[in-house]
Design a protein around this nucleic acid. Structure first.
Lengths: 179, 179
DNA sequence: GTCGTTCTGTACATGATGCCCAGGAGAGCG
DNA sequence: CGCTCTCCTGGGCATCATGTACAGAACGAC
């Protein structure tokens, strides 16, 4: 470990270099790839690729390799974002409430006192009503606004950001948005 | 393609059963696990686990096993959501514009004519201004509102939804929110 | 110049993978 | 009731990747 940096809190942020960036990009594009195959493609020794990967994982850059599950494929094709206004001091209760709702895929607290933003999924537009009722049916929530997702022109991606962080040139190929 | 919508193949989306659900949960919790180890934990033959996994992947339930990269760890600790109002007929241009911005991690079109919602990251609050300027500095965007994420009480998770879809009992353990 | 770090190339033992097959249990159908 | 189809089981096999280790070379820092 080169543990000179000890950034408390937010971002550890050990800037990644070009090799890290290429490794991450490779893993994002072809997750089934192994360390050995990755090292071949990167043109480095296997030990190097392995050391880099270990370092990225230890440094928290790679949180894990969780399966990317498509909610639509398991019966939840409708996605929505709900903005919730929370009564003063009810934040913790609301958090606990929303954590219990499976259809709440993620929850953020955002600027503006008492505001939260959450991503929801539902089995249908009609079912979304049920989900919203359950979500907002809680005393601590004083107001809510829901926006239904119609299309997803840019699915979640990380590769372009990784390339930028690694000092690599922006993608130029035909398919310039993956990962 | 639009990642969230159900693909044209319509007939697909076969409800997953309990074994599928447990397999998905296992993979979500311990991604480094192999098929062999998974089959042991599930108490089924290896061939069964392998067949189930293959089926889940073929059916689009598992899109892949991409590395879960933490933007904060590569120098982008600030997250924000921006709502954009788009001028009639400029949607496609705006999409292409936003696709070119690495800090745009995902983009959705939402209800309300001409509205989009995107997730942004930045190196700092000050840097966020630069990102927003780049995002909204485009003729097709007539208005925008940004909400900075302060906390993330529920990071993106899929396990509770999978359990529900698979007909398994909701999580009851001490740590009831992962994935 | 010398030290410390990183990368290289190689080696080895272990274990997982991909693939195959015969048999058995269960569900649905005629 | 008996049949067939599907799925799961349990085993085997060859190949391949993994984890780990080590000595030497390249590079930059002091």
């Amino acid at each position: 470990m080169t543990g000179t940096q000890t950034p408390a809190g937010a971002g550890a942020a050990p800037a990644i270099d070009a090799l890290d960036g290429r490794l991450l990009e490779l893993l994002a594009r072809e997750p089934r790839i192994g360390v050995l195959e990755a090292s071949r493609r990167l043109g480095v020794a296997r030990g190097t690729a392995q050391a880099r990967l270990d370092r990225l994982r230890a440094g928290g850059v790679i949180r894990g390799f969780g399966p990317d599950v498509d909610p639509a494929a398991i019966g939840y094709p409708v996605t929505a974002f709900a903005t919730l206004e929370i009564r003063q001091g009810q934040g913790e209760q609301v958090r606990r409430h929303l954590r219990e709702v499976p259809e709440v895929l993620e929850l953020h607290t955002i600027t503006g006192q008492g505001d939260m933003l959450c991503r929801l999924v539902a089995r249908s537009n009609a079912d979304l009503q049920r989900v919203i009722d359950r979500v907002v049916g809680f005393e601590g929530i004083v107001r809510s606004a829901t926006a239904i997702v119609m299309e997803n022109p840019v699915p979640f991606r990380i590769v372009p950001l990784v390339r930028q962080a690694a000092g690599l040139a922006p993608e130029t190929g035909p398919a310039a948005a993956e990962g």
